[in-house]
Design a protein around this nucleic acid. Structure first.
Lengths: 305, 305
DNA sequence: CTGAAAGCGCTTACAG
DNA sequence: CTGAAAGCGCTTACAG
């Protein structure tokens, strides 16, 4: 075809709003260049951000992404996968879903996959997650630098990541010679659960600690609310550090010190992992840890008097 | 084919994890039975919920949905639409994106569409949104029933829905004979903006109002935070009502009275509208208003002394 | 009712 | 380099 003819064709195509039919293309070429993503709970701010960044990043790397938002149980996640497979996606990005390891493994052996949000040492799948040991360590180091010794940890119980956070807390405390000050109260990743822990802390027989490192921001808000009601000033009397860096944490009136989970980087690394695997299927499985960043705000920055 | 043969085929198909190729089906039948959804900001809890419910509801009605998460500008929304059109979706669900009316109209005239989150009287498109006049009315009625007269409104400025909320507030105040008590401070849908309004209210020369109706929960949290710092007890000294019913609002330590925007119903009505239009293309354009529900919690329920 | 054939809109390998 | 032909995996209309 002469280039002049080509130009005319392209012009008309544009005028008619022509878009190549992806179905025909996919059928003819026997492959697709889009990905699927399964999100456990878009209502969770971190997951929503990861999903959004992943979609943007994948698109930028030439893989538009079909997102499935209804996967808050493992059954639904499997159903979502079936639908994505029917669309013949090239691979899938799993964002905190499914939950059980066998369900994850089952998906991983059917289609190239990457899991964002858990380490998954045992399952044979690429994974990317935040280094919670490093996160907890940075919090303890910061609080010690503020002069604190009695640093209590409100742990996340059996929630994903909580165990590694506890490990980091304990190791850092020991490194600072604070073995005797190690103290953990278990909670969950919610405001009410944090408030419950707060009541244990402030209404108990033990003296109020100098600082509290809480497993996530919502629970930290619960702790702070209880402190406020008891007339215990934060940070003057007790310093509080959260985890996640949700939107509310940075607001002027709360000003909560916290550990930022880098949603953008998690998404970017996850997408890169799967894109790389699609291009080089024999790549060994990778387990990536992303370093979180300590965000110091007012809630943890009052010198000890 | 004998039914016995059919049964054997189906059995083998299941064993081989056979999934019909949607691309081939779409190509052969010249139509698709899935929808597209464009979400402005999944990071917003209400939008995330609407998106999730819409995906669930559409799937239930036989239209699996491809969600596009990267549409926080009108240009990106248009780009997302192009991608959805390439997938030959049957219709699209617009969730607070795009923003400008011409951009919305442009999409509506290319493909069956429904807009969730704005009334859009002028644009020729099905729409579903919360009835903010009714929401504001229910708040004022509730506060008046609590014995309040000096009810201040922190408005949402030029944000979507804010004008109708102001209308509802004014009309309800007038109906209660409280014309002289009408007082509005403009803010935006954020905690910091609410805190700014809170400083105007509590540090100003005017007496603190008996109640404050804030345009959204985040801004209400800002107002309450400032009150707490000034030692002004909520609800004993001032009653506060928010809007949206975000997750944090119901937590025990905040217990914020608010107006629930029914994400589920918005999603369901939106999906029904587009599914109906796909089956009956000549249906007249519908503009649906969904009634919100007042949620009374502690922040607004202290009798006047 | 059953089964073989045509065709959807592309890509790809191949003949010219 | 260019262009015609075959074929991707389904659905549909049609002949038997």
């Amino acid at each position: 075809m002469r280039s002049e003819t080509r130009a005319r064709v392209e012009k008309v195509a544009r005028e008619l709003n022509y878009r190549p039919n992806l179905a025909a293309r996919s059928l003819a070429s026997a492959r697709t260049s889009y990905l699927g993503a399964i999100v456990g709970d878009v209502t969770n701010p971190l997951q929503a951000q990861i999903a959004r960044f992943a979609a943007i990043e994948a698109e930028a790397q030439g893989y538009p992404t079909i997102v499935s938002l209804d996967a808050d149980t493992d059954e639904k996640a499997e159903h979502a996968l079936e639908s994505l497979l029917a669309h013949r996606v090239a691979g899938v990005i799993l964002i905190e879903s499914p939950y059980e390891k066998p369900a994850i493994a089952k998906i991983a052996q059917r289609i190239p996959s990457v899991y964002i949000g858990r380490l998954l040492k045992i399952v044979d799948i690429d994974s990317v997650t935040t280094d919670h040991v490093a996160g907890a360590t940075s919090v303890v180091d910061h609080l010690v630098a503020q002069g604190c010794r009695r640093i209590l940890h409100v742990g996340g119980g059996a929630s994903p990541g909580a165990e590694r956070m506890r490990q980091g807390y304990r190791a850092a405390m020991e490194r600072h010679g604070l073995n005797d000050e190690i103290s953990i109260i278990e909670a969950a990743y919610t405001v009410d659960s944090g408030a419950q822990a707060g009541r244990e802390i402030f209404d108990g027989v033990r003296p109020v600690p100098e600082a509290i490192f809480v497993c996530n921001d919502l629970a930290a808000i619960g702790v702070i609310n209880v402190a406020a009601r008891r007339g215990i000033p934060v940070p003057d009397r007790v310093r509080v550090v959260g985890y996640d860096d949700v939107m509310l944490a940075g607001t002027e009136t709360l000003s909560l010190s916290t550990v930022n989970q880098p949603a953008h980087e998690l998404a970017r690394k996850g997408v890169s992992a799967i894109v790389h695997r699609l291009k080089h299927p024999e790549t060994p499985v990778s387990k990536q840890l992303v370093a979180p960043e300590l965000i110091v705000r007012r809630s943890s920055t009052s010198p000890l008097s």
